[in-house]
Design a protein around this nucleic acid. Structure first.
Lengths: 235, 235
DNA sequence: ACAAAAGTGTTGTTTTTACACCCATGC
DNA sequence: GCATGGGTGTAAAAACAACACTTTTGT
């Protein structure tokens, strides 16, 4: 590589992805066990280095696919972690992304070459470097963003019921919402298309399946919704 | 420098700050003229490289002070721009910050060693690299964040009147707001402390000066306010 | 006295909440 | 028939928008 800006120091640039999943009842995080010294045996986010010819976002997508086999997932730049000593091996700047996936879909696509594992948020193992802080901030960001935008749909399968969606929101915010108001609020957004079929597994009456109305979804994604009462208190 | 992760390529990391100011009537951006080839003569954000021993945020603060003499200003990480070809000289990843300052205060502190100049948003000069895109996204982000959080106070002097504040909001969103509702909304936030003195320059009746209630400000900063009606339409 | 800008009052509308109640079904 | 969620109805409360009107003071 030529160094065209002389006298400047180049720095290692990594990408790390905080991968949130939902199994129908709980929010989980996908981690891998670190094999290298130091801190081998601790758990780590999915990460890798940015190659010279690739944009950071492409690197995050590539690393995710290499490590898990996952393609076409929702990913969003989140923030940079760059304290000089955050990686004791060598100064490394990390661009953190957060990713949202449907765990079912993941189980099909899964490559377990690297043995990733899902962890509940309150049962997190010891993590390398500053990854615990990254997770803390990503969760905060997820709560912030999900309070305003219909982002959590990315965690559900194509077809889902309103009670499932509510369980998801309750998992993210660790609270109970009023079922009746929640479903009415959701339906009033115009984001959902009701299907003919019902899910009969989780109740006797059965809950109708819905799908996202894709065009409304894209159009309304930018605007502020209010699916979460008193969101402030969660940050 | 030792390369402890062998086989990985290191990359230049820069910081660039989008500096918003308010002169009492208009929002402006502070730019400098680029002296180096290529693209010399075009205008550039305040930027510089991250040193090996410094955190990116510290670099942004340092560069800002070196270039403008400004200290203690509001700065916030915004996003990373990292396309491989964004800087034609050499592959460089830029961490963009946005900064908010009171132009009056700036004029006192100003070091004009680098001849920075203020530009109106609709009179922007040709800019280097991808800086025009950075500005576009920063403005969007400013509008987004200011619709939810009382961030624009950073652009005003310590003491300010409600009509001044309204002019600022109207500048940011390029709209007129209803004066009467705006002031009532603001006062109801509990963020303001009324002072005894009035500003008699801009009207006959005179408008009372206010100050931020610092403790309420910090406490309520995280929660969602609603000073901007229909904010959606601005993104 | 008049104009001009500041800021308060009033009212109708919309949004949000809280909670009662009915619905569909498997057992 | 009865227990178990799913979902709709309703009414009170809160937030919001629109706009009339009063207040202050320089000329």
């Amino acid at each position: 590589m030529q160094h065209e800006y002389p006298g400047q120091k180049r720095i290692l640039v990594a990408v790390d992805s905080i991968i949130f999943g939902f199994d129908g009842s709980n929010i989980k995080l996908l981690l891998v066990e670190r094999s290298l010294k130091p801190e081998s045996g601790k758990w780590s986010l999915m990460g890798g280095f940015v190659e010279p010819s690739e944009a950071p976002e492409d690197a995050a997508v590539r690393v995710l696919e290499e490590r898990t086999g996952l393609k076409n997932i929702y990913i969003e730049q989140f923030r940079v972690f760059g304290k000089p000593d955050r990686d004791p091996v060598e100064r490394t700047i990390s661009i953190a992304y957060f990713a949202l996936i449907d765990i079912q879909q993941y189980e099909q696509q899964l490559s377990d070459e690297y043995n990733p594992e899902w962890f509940l948020l309150n049962e997190m193992p010891e993590m390398v470097f500053d990854h615990a802080e990254m997770v803390r901030m990503a969760l905060r960001q997820l709560r912030y963003k999900a309070a305003l935008h219909p982002i959590l749909f990315q965690l559900l399968p194509d077809r889902f019921t309103i009670p499932q969606l509510q369980a998801l929101y309750e998992g993210v915010y660790q609270t109970k919402f009023d079922d009746r108001n929640f479903s009415r609020k959701l339906l009033s957004t115009g984001l959902l298309v009701k299907l003919a079929e019902k899910d009969k597994l989780s109740s006797k009456k059965g809950a109708f399946y819905y799908q996202l109305d894709q065009s409304n979804y894209e159009q309304k994604f930018g605007s502020f919704l209010n699916l979460v009462p008193n969101p402030d208190k969660f940050f």
